[in-house]
């Protein structure tokens, strides 16, 4: 019988390098020495486990999880859904996904965000969910607005939702950002452009999913998340 072994190494051709000068903040915050390559030990193949007792059922509904009763946030109502899979196409059940985003105006509910666009009193801007037995997840939220930031004098982030995923081990831990199909700011964003591979950017771009759209309610976008896969071996393996 085959046994699970090490995780596949990360592909450096799809991830940003540490220092990407057009994204200015990376210059002073990026290590200069190369990372030390470490084969998986028990410290890497394990990772935190979450359950339904860690979160509440409404945490994945950003339309209601901060709104006052009978009110809801301003903005385009959307559903963001997809599967979490590994590189072997195996679904990853019961894994924690957390998201955060600006409101429909492009303003974050964060004390350091001073953009002049208004806070929405009915929108918190964060949500979380566990994938089900098939690795499936969904959130309801509003389409975030474009967001101005200090990089060049006139820099605007494309509409994006930050996504954090755990997987089954600490080496699968991933934070990324979900963009939306057709956004003209994607190709000129210095943060998107830290990614060296156009296919990898496409994989971060959620696609309009009319089949999952709820008529007269919310437009759906599909966003699948792929985490590192795992080798299997016929031989006894010790980490």
């Amino acid at each position: 019988m085959k046994q699970d072994a090490e995780y596949y190494q990360r592909d450096p051709n799809i991830h940003p390098v540490a220092c990407t000068p057009s994204y200015k903040s990376s210059i002073t915050r990026s290590p200069r020495f190369s990372l030390i390559s470490l084969e998986n030990s028990i410290s890497e193949i394990t990772g935190p486990v979450f359950s339904h007792s860690d979160i509440d059922p409404g945490d994945n509904d950003l339309l209601t999880n901060f709104a006052q009763s009978n009110e809801s946030p301003i903005g385009q109502r959307i559903i963001l859904h997809g599967h979490v899979l590994d590189e072997n196409s195996r679904t990853i059940p019961n894994t924690l996904i957390e998201i955060w985003q600006a409101n429909a105006c492009g303003r974050y509910r964060h004390k350091n965000d001073t953009y002049l666009a208004p806070i929405d009193p009915n929108f918190g801007g964060c949500g979380r969910a566990l994938t089900d037995g098939d690795g499936y997840f969904y959130f309801r939220t509003v389409m975030p607005g474009a967001y101005p930031w200090q990089n060049y004098v006139n820099s605007w982030r494309p509409a994006h939702i930050h996504v954090s995923v755990f997987g089954a081990s600490f080496v699968q831990r991933l934070i990324t950002q979900c963009y939306f199909e057709g956004d003209p700011l994607i190709p000129i964003c210095p943060i998107v452009q830290t990614i060296p591979n156009p296919n990898a950017i496409e994989q971060l771009t959620a696609r309009l999913d009319l089949n999952a759209t709820i008529p007269f309610d919310a437009i759906a976008y599909k966003f699948d998340i792929i985490l590192r896969g795992r080798r299997s071996t016929l031989f006894e393996n010790r980490f």
Partner: peptide, 12 residues
């Protein structure tokens, strides 16, 4: 499949 690419966690 290919792993989803990392992006910065950002300031918030």
């Amino acid at each position: 499949l290919k792993e989803t690419t990392s992006q910065t966690a950002g300031p918030y």
